[in-house]
Design a protein around this nucleic acid. Structure first.
Length: 103
DNA sequence: CGTATGACTAGCT
DNA sequence: CAGCTAGCCATAC
């Protein structure tokens, strides 16, 4: 059985370490399509298991928070803050908290 | 198969 | 810095 792009996205999202965040573009690239950031977002909003898929650790290339089907931006920011992610105003400080999958 | 949608990204004004 | 446009991709109908 061949895994769909969405399935790959879930696998990647699940391995994002606590206290770090990944961008849609980063996940899209790991999933095999660097330009499928939009498809990544779609998978995220379609997810039903925030307990196994930390979609709140997924942000835009600018570190900005988007969507979150379980409380909106405030809930997402709160979760990231609680995990130790560095914030810059209303956005994530990617310089300090961007996930480095190769390390 | 073609159209529509969306939690994106990069570039321009 | 804020707002808008065009391009790209996977999924649903």
């Amino acid at each position: 059985m061949k895994k769909s792009f969405t399935e790959k996205v879930y696998e990647i999202a699940k391995r994002i370490p606590r206290g770090k965040v990944a961008t849609y573009g980063q996940i899209a690239r790991l999933a095999g399509n660097a330009r499928a950031a939009r498809a990544v977002g779609m998978a995220m909003k379609c997810n039903s298991d925030t307990s196994i898929i930390p979609c709140h650790r997924v942000v835009t290339s600018d570190g900005g928070l988007t969507g979150y089907a379980f409380g909106g931006i405030p809930a997402k920011k709160s979760l990231l803050l609680k995990e130790g992610v560095h914030f810059s105003g209303n956005k994530v400080n990617l310089a300090l908290s961007k996930w480095n999958h190769e390390k």
